[in-house]
Amino acid sequence: MALEFRSVTKEFTTGTGQNLVAVNDISFRVNEGEFVSVVGPSGCGKSTILSMTAGLYQPTRGEVFVSDDLVGGPNAHVGFMLQKDLLLPWRDIVSNVEFGLEARGVAKSERRDRAMAELKRCQLSGFENHYPYQLSGGMRQRAALARTLAIKPEIVLLDEPFSALDAQTKLLLQNSFAGTISQTGKTTLLITHDLSEAVLMSDRILVLSERPGTVVAEIKVDLPHREEPLRRRVMPEVSDYAAQIFKHLKLEEKAI
């Protein structure tokens, strides 16, 4: 088991002293090498799930396991990336990719070798000495993926990594991410609000309800070419799956 949530509830205390339940009694499992997407309305606690997996904060009730270890804090098993690339603007690309390795006792020359290898895998060879501002948005996200993969995580968490990109860049980047991820065989949890993105990229989709978020549906995507969303995209079944998710989200009732 790569990732498991066991009846996880997370409450926050707001500034006014009120209790806010972000996610309520969530349980799910992600198998090794699986690509699972989490979709849901905005504010349903999608990012809370990610933060608890990364160990940035603890659940109020319940337990999170990564590779059969109880998550008690930031850990080496998990690499995450956000909508923002979070590249350090004062570092060139290769030093950015090395960033995650620096506090983990990896020797300098090995850091450089691993970073260069990841850059090559993410098709960024030749850009290692560029600074983030010199790259396009899509290239910056690929650099962020290289940094995430460089720490050799067992799980990759993607929190809406494509949502700030224009439509065409998005398609190309989804394709390149999917290729890289299936090449590495990493277990991946993708958090997204884009229904077709979830269908194109995943093996399985978890649909969350509105806050407090609970899992309302689990949809297995039975389509080939997970490693190449551009090929999946033209399949007629894709829209059926999207429609199915759409129904679970009860979006029609809200469209007035």
């Binding site: 933060s51 990364a54 160990g55 940035l56 930031p74 080496a76 998990v78 690499g79 995450f80 956000l82 923002k84 979070l86 350090l88 960033f99 995650g100 620096e102 506090a103 983990r104 720490i151």
Partner: peptide, 14 residues
């Protein structure tokens, strides 16, 4: 940027 600090924390920086 809080997210940058969180990223550094996730990377086990002191």
């Amino acid at each position: 940027d809080r997210d940058l600090v969180n990223l550094a924390r996730a990377y086990n920086l002191s």
